[in-house]
Amino acid sequence: MTMITEQNSSAGAANGQAPVPLTETKTLTLAKAINAGLRRAMLDDPKVVLLGEDIGTLGGVFRVTSDLLAEFGPNRVIDTPLAESAIIGTAVGLAYRGYRPVCEIQFDGFIFPGFDQIVSQVARFHYRTQGAVRMPITIRVPFGGGIGAAEHHSESPEAYFTHTSGLRVVAVSNPQDAYGLIRQAIASDDPVLYFEPKRRYHVAGPVSPELGAPLESARVVAAGTDVTLLAYGALVSTATDAALAAADEGVSIEVIDLRSLSPVDYDTVEASVRKTGRLVVTHEAARSGGLGGEIIAEITERCFDHLEAAPVRVTGFDIPYPPAKLESHHLPDLDRMLDGVDRVLGRRR
């Protein structure tokens, strides 16, 4: 297979510039932070390969994999035919052979043709084989709305996966976490669903070359004393803005970025709720059967006596994703979050 080696070795030069991995803190957009994390992981481990639609020459529809084909060649950045089940299913076979595949699902709503392979195969092989076969597969999924897109391009399918044993699920909210968590997800010996907030792709922030806090951990974004406001993905930014607005009215909100959706870092959430006594959970995904209900149930079991009021959910409605001109009604925004804060404070019903 000489041809393959030649493609690999000559491809780096095609870029015309030597690739420079992140070595110091730089300002990067969230999309470029993921790109830097992918590049670092590929440099560190030759078994890391990327699979997806349009990820090679184009660099992905969101350009998250830009320039990686030129640097690593077509055997490591694989433009696949348009078949999500096969993207996941061939990743299973590659993992069987010792690879660490990173699959890109082009849009959240396109993950369902691959659902069976994720739920029936990827999630179960370690359990099925009593630990003999590992599935270190990362599945990257741009998720969430707010970009005025057509149907199937704005969905929040995370609860299907948090309900599936054997998967780890993370959602990133900022460039630093995007960089650290993609590297940790790829290094994990478990399969990880990695949700990327597509409407935050182009927001820049400082990114240091560190891995950051562990994959399973939540992060207190802003400390507060009156209400715990729990968010993940794109809504962390909205929640942070809501906390600033509430502070003007004398309400102190503690904002937590969940980061890991499975498992949930309940210790961090519980510690916050024991302090504030009030919990609001927000997500774009539909309310019924959503992550918010599960988190509220667990927190209620853990620290019922510390709750001053019934926890509140501020979520998308129980509807299929609406047309773009209606999505602002569906998506939780700053005002709806503050409305939820008012309700948990007993200021409105």
């Binding site: 297979m1 393959i4 061939t90 076979g93 590659l94 069987y96 195969q121």
Partner: peptide, 18 residues
């Protein structure tokens, strides 16, 4: 039929490995 994809992925890896 699910395993036909696993076989294909494994074989892709074999080719990449030479």
């Amino acid at each position: 039929g699910a395993q036909t994809l696993h076989a294909t992925g494994w074989a892709m890896g074999a080719r990449f490995d030479g």
